[in-house]
Design a protein around this nucleic acid. Sequence first.
DNA 1: AGAGTGTACCGTACATTGTACGGCTCAGGT
DNA 2: ACCTGAGCCGTACAATGTACGGTACACTCT
Lengths: 253, 253
Amino acid sequence: MAGRKAAAPDPARSLALLWGSHTKPGRSGLTVRAIVDAAIDLADVSGLDALSMRMVADRLKVGTMSLYTHVPGKGELTDLMFDQAYGDLYADAEPADQPGGWRGALEFIARRNWDVLSAHPWIHDVPTVRTALGPNITRKYEIELRPLDGLGLTDVEMDSALALVLTHVQGTARAGAEQLRTQRDSGLTDQEWWRQISPTLTAVMSNTHFPLAGRVGTAVGEHFQSALDPAHALTFGLTTILDGLAQLIEGRG
Amino acid sequence: MAGRKAAAPDPARSLALLWGSHTKPGRSGLTVRAIVDAAIDLADVSGLDALSMRMVADRLKVGTMSLYTHVPGKGELTDLMFDQAYGDLYADAEPADQPGGWRGALEFIARRNWDVLSAHPWIHDVPTVRTALGPNITRKYEIELRPLDGLGLTDVEMDSALALVLTHVQGTARAGAEQLRTQRDSGLTDQEWWRQISPTLTAVMSNTHFPLAGRVGTAVGEHFQSALDPAHALTFGLTTILDGLAQLIEGRG
DNA sequence: AGAGTGTACCGTACATTGTACGGCTCAGGT
DNA sequence: ACCTGAGCCGTACAATGTACGGTACACTCT
């Protein structure tokens, strides 16, 4: 990152913005809400690194520094973008109402989170340990905990189980996003890329050899036409995790 | 990111560097190996964003542009750092020799990967979908697959199972790294930070309320003195995942 | 109606980044 | 003794976030 060190977002200021109404328009119609929406649109296309305050301002047809009247800096802006992105995650349906009990609910949660992460890959680049206290994130947490309540788990176990599923979804989604971005940047699909470096690779590692890695890597490559298939990783991992959670829950039930 | 767009690393060039010997010293003693080592040292302390070519050059007491004689650019440099960081992961012991069968082996793998990620948190910021073909990474893959061979799993399943464990470790380690970095940047522990924003938060969300989120969040906070405990998340998730994998493997055995 | 005031807006400037470009300086071969 | 090529590096440039200080408008009070 260049320029001034992008000073860490002020927590109190972020909170006030997060929970504020965002709707008092300035004299040129500029709104926190409009800034955040524009930034999300741009980040969806170009990613968080490529997102600049100048770009956001241009898109809104205002001077760059006008943004700073409404938003303290880029850090706080990304905090707002993050909360906003989860705005209508469960607007139409909530996990606890899905069929299939807690298992169906967690599958629904995984799928919905996956969808958000696919639509907004820049979320992976937002530092989120403490800032995750906006209204939408808090509501999300509340709703996602519901199907886990009353199963005999302790409160800490409920949180751990949910976090496990969400971490898995995030990890596989991140790998998928990286794959897509690499393909886009290089203009090569995984297949084309492999064909291109394959000769160099075999030449260079001629004297060493890795029988297992070779066998398994080839099998994976042929099965998915790629080194990794994020969708498959998602369902394989989710099934395994839910099987594991079932043992825990049955032990309590 | 500033400056020229940090052009995506050239795959063939990266491969040649990755598998090269790195040991021909230039006339000022400069070596690819030395550059990579210096960069890792700096990144361990300051992170990948704060790592600049100028810093690396200063540390080595050479001009900034001299680095470009040995390394095409920052992208390729991080590729080299990545492979290097996994250099002696299993130098002293390998997973397949651990007690506890495949389960003990996977626990060992998880622990060792966790250790590397803790020592080099910048690894989380290296884009690694395609570049992961250096000698150390390839050997790592070979060694980590061994304990999963001969259990009745298909090749694709072996890869999926390993990837599931590694993704979990990476996800929790990343959360832990973010937590640490945030604490360092702000100079506040999670507890101090919470005490500081708590009044603002309750004031701001006074009219809405989230009974489950409140109850569970409080329980977690009291149990771990923090919003999340990475070490606990690691073992909870690992246990669950291994329980799930056991069902898969027993079905095959 | 006129004056005053605060806030929205924004032009300019600066430090910092990766790296392109072109010149300098040596080691080694002839 | 000279040439050649590779290692080395000083300078320059475009892009970034944002500090600073100025301008212009909407409002309130007289």
